[in-house]
Amino acid sequence: QEELVKAFKALLKEEKFSSQGEIVAALQEQGFDNINQSKVSRMLTKFGAVRTRNAKMEMVYCLPAELGV
């Protein structure tokens, strides 16, 4: 569980995922086979993730800066 949270936060820091499906796929690539869209959705809510525009003006998920991840 701890490893999943770390990987999840690291992915969001990249600010390149525009959908929950993309986050699920990226986590599965890292070996988290039991991850699915509903789990990702709950984690996004739990950590207060928001959708914002990145440098390329794409809408992407990211974590609020005050979490200091």
Rank of each mutant, 00 (worst) to 15 (best):
F47C: 03
E29Q: 11
E58T: 05
P64N: 04
E15T: 05
Y61D: 01
F8S: 01
G48N: 08
R53M: 15
I35P: 01
G31D: 02
F32A: 00
E58K: 08
L11W: 02
R53G: 04
G68C: 06
A49N: 03
Y61M: 02
R42P: 01
R53A: 09
T52S: 11
M59W: 15
A49C: 05
G31K: 03
Y61E: 02
N54Y: 02
E66D: 13
A7C: 15
E14F: 06
V60L: 03
L67T: 14
G21P: 08
V24L: 11
K39W: 14
L4R: 01
A10T: 08
R51N: 04
R53D: 04
K13R: 15
E58M: 06
V60R: 03
T45V: 13
K6N: 12
M43E: 01
A49Y: 05
N36H: 06
Q1F: 13
I23N: 00
L11P: 00
K9V: 15
N34Y: 12
K6F: 09
G48V: 03
K9W: 10
V69E: 15
N34F: 12
E66S: 09
E14L: 15
S19F: 08
E29D: 10
E2S: 12
A49F: 04
Q37F: 09
S41F: 07
G31Q: 02
V24R: 04
G48Y: 03
K6M: 12
I23A: 01
F32H: 04
A7Y: 06
F32V: 01
K56D: 13
S41N: 10
A65Y: 10
A25V: 11
T52M: 15
V5N: 12
Q30E: 06
F17R: 03
D33G: 13
Q1K: 11
R53N: 08
Q28S: 08
V69G: 13
E29K: 11
G21K: 14
Q20V: 15
E15W: 06
A55P: 06
F47T: 06
E58F: 04
S18F: 07
V24K: 04
Q1G: 10
E15P: 09
K39A: 14
G21D: 13
Q30H: 07
S19I: 05
L44A: 02
V50W: 04
E14A: 12
Y61N: 02
T45E: 14
S19A: 07
T52E: 07
K39V: 15
N36R: 06
E3L: 12
Q37C: 06
E22F: 03
S38V: 12
G48Q: 07
A10S: 11
I23F: 08
G48F: 04
G21F: 12
G31P: 00
